[in-house]
């Protein structure tokens, strides 16, 4: 999306709703919390769009998302829960063999559990990079930290994941 274009609220919901949901789900491992976060972010985006000045839209959107997430975490004041069973996932596309599905589910549950075991800063950096697909620059803008900090958090987060999953 060009930097001088202000998207409509509907565009944001359509283009980014699923990514925001996946971001929240991977950070919390909880579908209800992810659901609530998407709604809260879309409400904040709708309000904020009226004052938005063209610039880094991704940075702006993910700063809102991150702040909404942290506000929600503070509000709930409890630790993230374990992932939901595989029935919660909405499968799409072709249907692989049952043993492949089981293996993939086990691995994805292990990865999700490992993500939840990371300290928040590292988890957030890894999820924004590898789930959301943001550049280091946009992650730095969203988290309001220098790019060197982003680089360090992503690297250390991946290193911790590797150790947790061994």
């Amino acid at each position: 999306m060009p930097d001088d274009t202000i998207p409509s609220w509907e565009d944001v919901a359509r283009l980014h709703g699923r990514t925001i949901y996946n971001f929240a789900y991977r950070l919390t491992g909880n579908a209800d919390e992810a659901h609530d976060l998407v709604q809260e972010v879309l409400l904040r985006v709708r309000k904020g769009l009226q004052a938005y000045t063209p610039g880094s839209f991704e940075g702006w959107l993910w700063r809102i998302t991150r702040n909404a997430f942290l506000d929600e975490v503070r509000r709930r004041k409890r630790r993230p829960t374990v992932p939901l069973p595989d029935g919660d996932h909405d499968g799409t596309g072709s249907t692989p063999a049952p043993e492949e599905v089981l293996a993939a589910v086990r691995l994805s549950e292990d990865v999700q559990a490992a993500l939840l075991a990371l300290p928040y800063e590292f988890r957030e950096a890894v999820v924004l990079c590898d789930v959301v697909g943001l550049s280091y620059e946009d992650i730095a803008a969203a988290a309001d930290v220098p790019i060197g900090t982003v680089r360090s958090r992503i690297h250390r987060g991946r290193r911790m994941l590797k150790e947790l999953l061994e």
């Binding site: 799409t92 994805s108 993500l115 890894v126 999820v127 789930v131």
Partner: peptide, 18 residues
């Protein structure tokens, strides 16, 4: 580690959120 996170399934947005 990067590849296992990137290979996590993408979860579709549940209907009714918007």
């Amino acid at each position: 580690a990067r590849s296992v996170v990137r290979d996590l399934p993408i979860i579709e947005l549940p209907p009714g959120i918007v």
